[in-house]
Amino acid sequence: MAHDHDPPAPVDGGDHPPTEYELLERALRELLIEKGVFTAEDVRRTIDDWDTRTPANGGKVVARAWTDPEYKARLLADSKAAIEELGFDVGPAPQIVVLENTPQRHHVVVCTLCSCYPRTLLGLPPDWYKSKEYRSRVVAEPRAVLKEFGTEVPDDVEIKVVDSTADLRYLVLPARPAGTEGLSEDELAALVTRDCMVGVTNASAPG
């Protein structure tokens, strides 16, 4: 079969010969495009769409909840509908559930079986979330793991680990940091990090 391949290397404009897995990615992609399963444009568009999904989206949801008590109530009662109110597409499934951190309870989310993560709001999960160290340890010794992230949870605060094993995805609503009373919603959103929406850190005031 006469077939024009791109030059064989580099696969990624990278500095190494392609690995077996990079070659496999390319082989599968080329074959699927040739068979009309999807187009090269579909692949590009999908990547572009997912590039817009970043923790800033989750940050907007959190900042709104911090500034609008009625929104927060809706967010906790029906997370998906409240998130969609802000214009974010969370897709048909899986469902998203928001977990509110309070002075009595700190949530931290994990998927011990794979890498379930609220991708539609936070983007792709970081490596540490998918690591065997995090997945194996955070369920059994959450306080030690949080300490590695610089987070000390007082002993009189319950730590609630949520293992998202099935069809729901969990997003932590961190506590609004003290000393942020004068900040605008946008300024507040900038304080909301990916890690605090997974629950390994708290949101902190600027400076």
Binding site: R143, E158, I159, V161, S164, T165
Partner: peptide
């Protein structure tokens, strides 16, 4: 090793 109030929830 943590406090007795700590919990874990899973689906």
């Amino acid at each position: 090793s943590g406090p007795g109030a700590d919990t874990l929830s899973a689906d």
